[in-house]
């Protein structure tokens, strides 16, 4: 599998086009993308043209693009937001929900309006409640390395040879299934879908993943402080008993080497 990526050592002239669509998010997701540091420059040199992203570029209206990285949930009382998210679906071949807000609502799940100067801005929905989303990257803030991996895999999927496409598809499948699973997430998922299902084995991944330290382990099993949880979805997605794909993860050494090489 390592060879699969390495064959493509020379940068392919044909880059994919990527845009960053900012809904009601905090731009922390974009900062995470930028936190690939030197790697971001390599991605832009070799694999992806940034064709849209109000924070980074002057393009004011959503263009056609291969991959839209959508950050933030959608305020359904804000006409522009609703219009832009629909436009994003029309213009992008692949829509990736980046971060807890886009995937699950995150802190905007607590929003209830009544605030100056737009007290009617009361309802925020995860992107997947309004359009079909292809890939999920949960977490708050999402992890730069996961965003990077998805970008590289999206490139292989759209521009790679047959083997590369195969690998990319396998890698992205669980993140696509997460998108299919729905738009609700909470620390409670660990109970509902892992512990209650007789699947928890006490690894501790969930606690490590939680960005607000809401999870502790009591005799090896997770305890979620529900008054800290912000509903980012990181814990469940990180849990090896939410998904574990034997056709990808055992190849970790080759895949990690290959991604490193691709970003050199």
């Amino acid at each position: 599998m390592a060879e699969t990526i390495k064959k493509e050592e020379k940068p392919v002239a044909d880059k994919i086009t990527v845009g960053h669509v900012h809904m009601s998010g905090c731009t922390g997701c974009l900062v995470s993308l930028a936190d690939n540091y030197g790697g971001l420059l390599t991605i832009l040199d070799k694999y992806a043209d940034l064709v849209y992203g109000l924070t980074l570029a002057d393009v004011r209206h959503i263009p056609k693009m291969d991959v839209a990285l959508v950050e933030g949930s959608v305020c359904i009382q804000d006409k522009i937001s609703v219009q832009e998210i629909k436009e994003t679906r029309e213009k992008a071949a692949v829509v990736v929900a980046v971060g807890g807000c886009a995937c699950y609502g995150n802190i905007t799940r607590f929003t209830r309006g009544g605030q100056q100067n737009q007290p009617q801005h009361e309802s925020y929905l995860p992107v997947g409640d309004l359009i079909k989303v292809d890939v999920y990257i949960p977490g708050c803030a999402p992890c730069p390395q996961l965003i990077r991996n998805v970008c590289v895999m999206a490139y292989l999927l759209l521009k790679g040879n047959k083997d590369q496409q195969e690998l990319a598809k396998k890698y992205l499948t669980p993140l696509m299934l997460l998108a299919d699973r729905g738009t609700e997430a909470c620390g409670c998922d660990l109970m509902y879908d892992v512990v209650n299902q007789g699947l928890c084995m006490g690894c501790g991944s969930c606690a490590a993943a939680c960005p607000v330290r809401a999870i502790t382990h009591e005799y090896g099993k997770p305890n979620v402080n529900r008054e800290m949880c912000i509903k980012c979805g990181a814990c469940y997605a990180q849990c090896p008993r939410s998904f574990f794909n034997f056709d990808v993860i055992p190849e970790f050494e080759g895949i990690m080497d290959a991604i490193d090489a691709a970003l050199k």
Binding site: S32, D35, I137, P138, G139, A141, P142, C143, P144, Q145, L146, N149, Y171, P174, L175, M201, C203, G204, S205, A208, A209, C210, P211, C232, G233, A234, C235, A237, Q238, C239, P240, F244, V248, I249, P250, F252, I255, M256
Partner: peptide, 19 residues
């Protein structure tokens, strides 16, 4: 299983920035 968790965390670092 903990090794599986570690490797999943390396390939799919959802909440494991810079790990």
């Amino acid at each position: 299983c903990q090794m599986q968790a570690v490797r999943k965390g390396q390939l799919y670092p959802v909440g494991l920035r810079d790990v």
